[in-house]
């Protein structure tokens, strides 16, 4: 049996006594483009933080390509690239330095870092901005840097937490093309987004989390087969739980 890209078993995460993720389990096979949807505060980012090592969790287990993210955290992290919702970067560092430092953290040698940075700077159209400090960039270019940073060590699992938030339509479509290409090249992608048409266009399977629980986990084709949209299903799952019936 091929080891899945991501396995989450009975994950429980709470902040003090406030539960954020309530005993969720799901698996993402290699090569899948998985959409992880839910309203603000549903538990998406808490789950992602637990996967990548930014957040602790109380119960359950998470394996990335078979590596436990707690016991074997260093090996697990080598396989993951994260583009976070918020810009968690040294704002005074230049674009090239950001990529170079992260490549170094992942054990890449100088020549390898330089070549990889060149490739990503070109791929994301950052040539004019590579010597600028991160804080000097516009929101769209900051997003591109976050994506380039996530790809620096060529991870097999890419986690994108609202990667197109706040970017213009042209860039969003450009990023979609890039993500489709990365997925077709074999990268497993976990995407969270509030743009449901984005999830419908890109993802092969959808998980919906609401109030810390997985309320739907289905193939996209099954969801849209009757002419319905992801948005229809999303609203059905989230509204029936948030609006009490008479």
């Amino acid at each position: 049996m091929i080891t899945p890209a991501l396995e989450i078993h009975h994950l429980v995460k709470s902040y003090n006594d406030l539960p954020a993720v309530k005993d969720i389990s799901f698996t993402i096979p290699r090569g899948e483009f998985f959409g992880f949807l839910g309203p603000n505060g549903a538990g998406k980012t808490s789950t992602i933080n637990a996967i990548v090592g930014i957040g602790n969790f109380q119960k359950g287990s998470i394996h990335v390509f078979g590596h436990d993210v707690v016991a074997d955290y260093r090996e697990a992290r080598r396989h993951v690239g994260l583009s976070p919702q918020e810009f968690n970067v040294d704002a005074f560092a230049t674009v090239r330095d950001i990529l170079d430092f992260v490549g170094g953290y992942f054990g890449m040698r100088k020549q390898e870092r330089r070549e990889r940075s060149d490739t990503l700077i070109e791929l994301f159209g950052l040539q004019v901005h590579e010597k600028k400090q991160f804080r000097m960039l516009s929101g769209g270019f900051k997003r591109r840097v976050m994506l380039a940073r996530a790809l620096m060590h060529d991870p097999e699992l890419l986690i994108l937490d609202e990667p197109t938030a706040g970017v213009d339509v042209e860039l969003r479509h450009e990023l979609w093309r890039m993500l489709e290409k990365l997925n077709s090249e074999g990268k497993t992608i976990l995407l969270t987004t509030h743009y449901l048409e984005e999830a419908q266009k890109l993802c092969t399977r959808i998980g919906i989390i609401f109030n810390g629980e997985i309320v739907a986990l289905e193939n996209k084709d099954a969801l849209v087969k009757d002419g319905k949209t992801i948005e229809d299903h999303y609203l059905r799952h989230t509204q029936k739980r948030s609006i009490p019936n008479d």
Binding site: V52, G53, Y73, R74, N88, D90, V102, R149
Partner: peptide, 14 residues
């Protein structure tokens, strides 16, 4: 404070 400690925490550093 600026959260770029996360860059280090997500890297394979002990």
């Amino acid at each position: 404070f600026l959260r770029h400690i996360e860059e280090v925490l997500t890297a394979p550093l002990s």
